[in-house]
Simulated assay, not measured.
Amino acid sequence: MFVRSIYATGDPARADTAIRALNTQGRDLLEERPGYRGAGVFVDRELGKLLAVSWWESEEARRNSDQVMRERRGALLGPFAGTLAVDNYEVAGFHEVRLPRVGGGLRITRLEFDPADTDLLADTFRTSVVPRLETMAGLARAALFVDRQRGRGMTGVLFTDRESLAASRAGQAAARHEGAAKSHVTVTGLEEFEVVHADARVG
């Protein structure tokens, strides 16, 4: 599986306009593309941050969707988006306990690592991080995305409600510390979002 992430920042008061466009026109465009396997839309309404992730069954399917999505992205996200960043990743780890819920919480951790340690990172996520996450109330999904060439990636951990997200902070901090040490990664960012939409079909 492969994903494309769109990270936009802008005026918090205009975030809902962009969300509506992504959940209507944007979803229609994605569903027309071969190999599409679902998407997620996440928002930080206080700071004005929007994260959209689309899932693809192959790298080729993701690449083939790039042109049409690139042409329409500005219209979908304006007038909200003041900044926009697009990243492509391979899904190196995925664990599902239950389906995510609208209004739930997402925590992402941004990572940098030696590309030679990519497989070590994936193994550490599966064998060390996921078992720790499974002990946390409200866990829905956990995923690891990697860019093997650039040595960059991120984990995304979804919880069914914002209370569970908040309650997991100490536990995930411990898992993050242990996982980073074992896999030789540097944590470069930590963010939390509200779940607006999440319907990826994985496995």
Rank of each mutant, 00 (worst) to 15 (best):
G35R: 04
V157H: 09
R73M: 14
F145P: 08
R72Y: 07
T118I: 06
G179P: 04
F94E: 06
P79S: 02
A39L: 15
A52V: 09
G151V: 09
M136Q: 13
A61E: 01
M136D: 01
T160S: 13
A81W: 04
G35M: 01
L29I: 07
F42C: 04
V130R: 00
R201D: 10
G78K: 12
L158I: 04
P34Q: 01
E46V: 11
M1N: 06
P115R: 14
R126E: 06
M69N: 10
L144V: 02
A75D: 13
E31C: 05
E192M: 15
R37M: 13
A75I: 05
P131Y: 06
E46F: 15
G82Y: 13
E71D: 14
G35Q: 06
R20E: 11
R73E: 11
D87R: 15
R45G: 07
A61Y: 00
V68T: 08
A173T: 11
T155N: 07
T186F: 07
V129G: 00
T124S: 11
L84T: 02
G105M: 05
A142I: 02
E60F: 08
K182C: 03
T9F: 04
R45Y: 11
V187N: 06
Q67Y: 09
A81T: 00
L120D: 07
R141G: 01
T127G: 00
A180M: 06
E31R: 15
A21Q: 09
S128C: 04
L22D: 03
E57S: 10
V86D: 00
D44W: 09
L120H: 09
P79C: 07
G156V: 05
N23D: 09
S128I: 08
A15L: 15
R201I: 08
G156E: 07
D119M: 10
V146R: 02
V53N: 05
R98K: 14
G26I: 05
E178V: 15
R176F: 02
R101E: 08
Q149P: 00
E32D: 10
L165E: 05
S5T: 08
K182Y: 06
G40W: 02
L121E: 03
L139F: 03
P79K: 04
D161Y: 02
E32C: 08
H197Y: 09
R176A: 12
E60Q: 12
E90I: 12
G138I: 13
S65Q: 03
L158T: 09
A170I: 14
L30N: 06
D114V: 11
P34G: 09
R148T: 00
L76C: 05
R201Y: 02
L30A: 13
P100I: 00
L111W: 10
K49M: 14
P131C: 03
R70M: 13
A81Y: 00
L30K: 06
H95T: 06
V41F: 03
R62Y: 03
A137Y: 08
S128A: 12
L77Q: 03
A116W: 05
N88F: 12
A166Q: 10
V187G: 08
A143G: 14
V68I: 14
